[in-house]
Each structure stands twice: as structure tokens, then as C-alpha cells.
């Protein structure tokens, strides 16, 4: 048990430090890499909660795909750091106000007796060895929560179509290639053999 607690505190510490680093480091590439580290530590903590499906999906989707694209975009942008830092002092009071409001809200929820606290939540019984997190999740999603699940799928589909519709521009007069046509090209369409008489070399 002590090992588990040590692992928990280790990953929590890494995650919090990484999250702080995301907003404090100067280099945007470092910020993205720290975000990757934060996601990874979160996945490890979920693993400790026996939620292995969610943990691995977090790595597959966020670390493996979303953050790669983030990194891609941040590397492509030529970010000049000076204008980003310009209004720091001017906006500081507003930012501090927002931060304090958020902190107070969170503390109000967490500190109120009776809703959170160790005594409110009994220690869950450890699952048996043949317990499959993935199977349980799948059974719930496809029986009790089928409609919300399907609706979420439709919303995602609409979002994809909207993203394509918003960014797709068709301009007239641009040259495009049709790869299937290129691949279908045959020899006799581009090569023509011409019969001609052999000629004498000049000056012979």
C-alpha cells in the first residue's frame, strides 16, 4: 500500500509541476511538452484508480494524436515572444481577480463539510482479478447510456462536417492533379514512335 501511495504522490507532484510549467515557461514548445507530461501523469493516476481503459485512451487520443497536432502547429507558428509579454503588468490585476475567484469557488466546494472528505467516501472494495474495466464500460455505454452515447457521436459528426464546411474554399482557376488518372496513364498515350529514314552525318 505504501508503494501505491508513493507512486500516487510522485505522479501528482509531477503533474502539478508540469501544469504550472505549462503556463509559466517562455518557450511555447516547452509548454506543449509539459502539457504532454501532465497528461501522461494524469493517465498514470487513473491507472492507480483501476480505470485502465480511460488511462490508456487518454494517452492514445490526447498524447498520441491531439498533442502531436498541437506541437505541429506551435512549431510552424513563428511566435515572437516580446509582444506576448507586453501587457503583462497591465492585465495582471484582472488575471489575479479571475484566478482568486476560481480558487475561492473550488475551495468552497472542496472545503464544505458533508460533501467531500475522507469520511464521506468509503474505501471502494478492490475489484477481482477477472474484472475488465473495458468490458464494464462498454456494457454501460451500449445499454443504459446508448442514447446519450449516440447523440454525442452525432454531435461530433456535425462538428467534423462544420469544420470541413468552414475551412473548405474552392477557388476557380487552380491547377490540381488527379492521382487516379495519373496512375492510369498508359504508354501509348505519351510515347509516339516515329518512323524516319536514317540520315547522313553532315559533311560526309
Amino acid at each position: 500500500m505504501i508503494v501505491q501511495e508513493l507512486i500516487f504522490y510522485f505522479f501528482s507532484l509531477v503533474m502539478v509541476l508540469a501544469a504550472v510549467a505549462v503556463v509559466t515557461v517562455r518557450n511555447p514548445i516547452y509548454a506543449v511538452l509539459y502539457l504532454v507530461l501532465a497528461f501522461f501523469s494524469a493517465a498514470a493516476i487513473w491507472m492507480l484508480l483501476e480505470a485502465e481503459f480511460l488511462a490508456i485512451i487518454l494517452v492514445v487520443v490526447y498524447v498520441g494524436a491531439v498533442m502531436v497536432l498541437f506541437l505541429f502547429v506551435v512549431m510552424m507558428l513563428d511566435i515572437n515572444l516580446v509582444p506576448l509579454k507586453e501587457g503583462f503588468i497591465r492585465y495582471l490585476p484582472v488575471a489575479a481577480l479571475v484566478a482568486i475567484a476560481m480558487a475561492v469557488e473550488m475551495l468552497m466546494v472542496v472545503w464544505s463539510r458533508g460533501r467531500f472528505g475522507v469520511d464521506m467516501f468509503p474505501v471502494p472494495a478492490p475489484n477481482s482479478a477477472d474484472y475488465s474495466n473495458t468490458r464494464e464500460l462498454g456494457e454501460l455505454l451500449y445499454t443504459n447510456y446508448l442514447l446519450p452515447f449516440e447523440v454525442a457521436g452525432v454531435v461530433l459528426l456535425v462538428a467534423i462536417i462544420a469544420a470541413v464546411a468552414l475551412t473548405l474554399r474552392t477557388r476557380p482557376g487552380i491547377k490540381t492533379q488527379n492521382p487516379s488518372e495519373q496512375v492510369r496513364t498508359r504508354r501509348d498515350e505519351s510515347v509516339r514512335l516515329v518512323k524516319m529514314k536514317s540520315e547522313k552525318p553532315r559533311g560526309a
Binding site: I29, L33, V36, E52, F53, I56, I57, V59, V60, V63, G64, A65, V68, L71, F72, M75, S132, N133, T134
Partner: peptide
Amino acid sequence: DVDAGLLYVLALTSLGVYGIIIAGW
């Protein structure tokens, strides 16, 4: 012998690209 072995493999094979991107940058 983990239950989500296939997912684990997918997750790890998707991480390999970070080495390449970071090296390039």
C-alpha cells in the same frame, strides 16, 4: 498479461513519433 493489451500497444506505438518531431525541431 494485461486486459487492455491492444490499447496499450496502440498508445505506445503512437508515442514514437514524439522522438522524431522533437529531434527535427
